[in-house]
Design a binder for these strands. Structure first.
Length: 597
RNA sequence: GCCUCGGUAGCUCAGUUGGAUAGAGCAACUGCCUUCUAAGCAGUAGGUCAUGGGUUCGAAUCCCGUCCGGGGUACCA
């Protein structure tokens, strides 16, 4: 049992015995003892004053005496201003370390066949342009939260819904047909998603041009926007697509494939993947059927113009359109259809949607609609809502060229990692392949940690002028600490020193060493908290503080230079265990750690 | 207008189930490599926790008002 739990239960006992009052164990407030005060765990005694009818000091004193008497693990206590500081025995901490060191999956809860199945949807790109920084945040959060969900003892299915149809796709298609001159990824050497994105931008350029020409001829802005030849052609293409015109379908399939091939490269580089991919072109008609079923069952209603609506005013929401008057589907319709297909494919216990916070309202509505349509998990779906990535000048806008491209950013960061590594020159003897692998590990570690260390709910700022740092509270700092530990362990091994995971009880521990064990012992609770709060940032901040402490220890203590064999062994086991926690913690963020850097 | 999220050091962010003197990193300045990796460690400086009230033994944290900013409120996705 964890020490906190033991103390809480003993406090309940003490309050009962001393003040004849029953309290709940969870109501006992514990906190880590302040650094400048001797002790490990602090009990806040103020809440007990109304039972004890004594001063805070006297109450704390009485409780302290009781605990010291009754609990072997408590060596001593002190009372400062109504805070009861407990000193935990050294042997307890040694046993905690021993336990962590001997468990390969320390902190993780394993799933079995009865565990809940959680489906996480993330990424969800459009196929008309390449991925940018906003998608990176989505992908990293989605992948990481999946890992965290798994670590908390759930089965996981990662899924992606690709928005592969609609007017925006037709814009790229029309532009390619009109001005593409037969360009392909093969004959230009341009990555497929970028090539298609270029045509999307090209479309917009021509479209804007046409609008201003029409306006000069005396049309209003609205008229010009409706009548510009390009948009008329794109709309026509969409109609042909829906009518399954062979020529249009062929073009659509070809250009979408270019994009998928491009995305695959980006996903692979980012290190994210999916168990099952859905395509909107397969789901939107299913959604329409579901809406019509809902209409028939009286869940929805139809207006005179034939459009279908859901009245959610009883649920505190608005009325929501589900099918347009021409019978075509809207965004919501597609999400209903996708949900239906997923429900058929898997026995989902919980659905998590990783989608930006601009869609909070949409998911509130979706949850109610799915519930009304009879999906068990509809009511309990979780919208993992995250904030936008902002640039110094504001939001990213694809058409205005103010986006930070995912592929470019990764390539730049790998280049910075290469330069930095070469300057430091610690990778002698590595092959070209090993070097490339290490540069990538560091670069992606920096990028991922940068994105994941901030609270997902909040908007975050990315300044491309100041490239992502490699020093301080960063991924490479953590990776560096891991590499340092590995270096020591390798040296120990080559000197014939064996790690013994049975620790000698008689050794004395420095303050820093004890603090490190305390930090290690928090890992399981941190994983749980990250899962409950849907926050990879909780993991990131924990690893950072652990690693920060380790570096202080490393600076002040010699590991291999220690004469006392039992102490040296302890320090090796401590270091190795921290390396393991760092490695598995970083894995929860989707970040790899290098053996050397 | 209504709904919703946010405002903590020059900058980027922790800390928010109410607890002791509000923490990191970056940027600035100062030390520490003949000893296990200096992508490190130690130090100096930097705060009316947007603001005004309230609740409490105790408020960055909870409640109310105000100011500022983001998002939503589409037969767009």
């Amino acid at each position: 049992m964890h020490i906190d739990q033991i103390i809480k239960e003993k406090i309940v006992e003490a309050v009962d015995s001393l003040y004849d009052q029953k309290i709940e164990a969870d109501s006992v407030q514990l906190q880590n003892t302040r650094k400048d005060v001797e002790g490990d765990v602090t009990v806040v005694v103020f809440p007990f004053l109304r039972f004890s009818k004594k001063s805070p000091e006297q109450t704390a004193e009485q409780l302290g005496e009781y605990l010291k008497e009754q609990v072997d693990l408590i060596d001593d206590f002190s009372v400062i201003k109504g805070f009861l500081n407990l000193l935990i025995s050294k042997n307890y901490w040694l046993s905690v370390l021993e336990d962590a060191a001997n468990r390969p999956t320390f902190g993780f809860k394993a799933a079995d066949e009865n565990s809940p199945l959680v489906m996480v949807e993330y990424s969800s790109p459009n196929t008309n342009k390449p991925l940018h920084l906003g998608h990176i945040r989505n992908n990293l959060l989605g992948f990481s939260i999946g890992e965290i969900i798994k670590a908390n003892g759930n089965k996981l299915v990662k899924t992606n819904i690709v928005n592969d149809r609609g007017i925006h796709i037709c814009k790229s298609m029309y532009a390619w047909k009109q001005w593409g001159e037969g360009k392909t990824p093969e004959n230009t050497g341009i990555k497929g998603d970028h090539l298609v994105g270029d045509f999307y931008v090209l479309f917009d350029k021509h479209y804007k041009q046409e609008i201003s020409e029409l306006q000069e001829k005396g049309l209003s802005k609205e008229e010009a926007e409706q009548q510009a030849p390009s948009i008329v052609a794109a709309r026509e293409m969409l109609l042909k697509w829906e009518a399954k015109d062979p020529e249009v379908i062929e073009l659509w399939e070809m250009m979408n494939q270019w994009v998928y091939d491009g995305f695959d490269v980006t996903y692979k580089e980012l290190g994210v993947d999916f168990d099952k991919i859905y395509y909107e072109s397969d789901t939107y008609l299913v959604g329409k059927e579901e809406v019509l079923r809902g209409l028939k069952e009286g869940i929805f209603y139809q207006r005179e113009d034939q459009s279908v609506w859901a009245d959610l005013t009883a649920d505190g929401l608005d009325e929501k359109i589900l099918l347009r008057s021409d019978g075509t589907s809207v965004y919501m319709t597609q999400d209903i259809g996708t949900a239906k297909l997923r429900f058929n494919d898997y026995t989902i216990d919980k659905m998590v949607y990783v989608v930006g916070n601009e869609q909070n309202y949409h998911f509130q509505v979706l949850s109610v609609l799915l519930d009304k349509l009879g999906f068990d998990w509809g009511k309990g779906l979780h919208h993992f809502s995250y904030g936008m990535v902002e640039l110094p000048h504001g939001k990213m806008k694809s058409r205005e060229g103010t986006v930070v491209d995912a592929d470019d950013l990764m390539a730049e960061m790998i280049e910075v990692a290469r330069k930095t590594s070469e300057e430091l020159g610690k990778l002698e003897g590595y092959t070209e392949a090993e070097l490339a692998e290490t540069y990538k590990t560091i670069a992606l570690g920096a990028l991922k940690y940068f994105m994941l260390k901030v609270d997902p709910k909040k908007n975050m700022l990315f300044n491309p002028e100041e490239s992502i740092d490699f020093n301080g509270n960063t991924g490479p700092f953590i990776q560096y600490t891991y590499a340092r530990i590995r270096s020591v362990i390798r040296k120990a091994e080559s000197n014939g020193i064996q790690l013994n995971k049975q620790l000698t009880q008689s050794i004395s521990l420095s303050e820093k060493e004890q603090e490190l064990i305390k930090s290690i012992s928090l890992f399981p609770a941190v994983i749980k908290e990250a899962g409950d709060a849907y926050s990879p940032a909780v993991i990131a901040n924990y690893i950072y503080s652990l690693v920060k402490e380790f570096n202080q220890f490393y600076h002040d203590h010699s590991i291999l230079g220690e004469e006392d064999e039992a102490v040296r062994n302890f320090r090796l086991v401590l270091s190795q265990t921290i390396a393991n926690v760092v490695e598995s913690g970083m894995k929860l963020l989707g970040i790899n750690v290098p053996e050397r850097m």
